[in-house]
Amino acid sequence: MEEWKVAGALVLGLACSGAWAADPNLGRNLAAGCAGCHGTDGNSVGGTASLAGMPRDRLLARIGEFRSGAKPATIMHQISKGYSDEQLALIADYFASRKPAGGER
């Protein structure tokens, strides 16, 4: 049931994406909020997950597990509840589009 709601919200999110064209940088701006812990553009320098280049669905599945409590967390279960499904979809799209820094870091 919960999965169905999330999936429905994502479809709705995609359907509404035209409305967001007004601010094409919304995903970038929201994702920048994650960079304090997960590194600029999602390239963590250690101790947190690197999100750069992570496939969208994988990131959304992980966040969904934090929100539902399926995956235990120290802090992400609290933070993930502050974002709407639409916002999370934009964030996931943005990180998926980023290049992982890989060995450089």
Binding site: G36, G39, T40, V45, G47, T48
Partner: peptide, 19 residues
Amino acid sequence: PTEAEGRFALSWAKNIWAD
């Protein structure tokens, strides 16, 4: 309080300094 969160605190610092 946990030691795990102590490690997260230090990795938070390293990541935000890098950011």
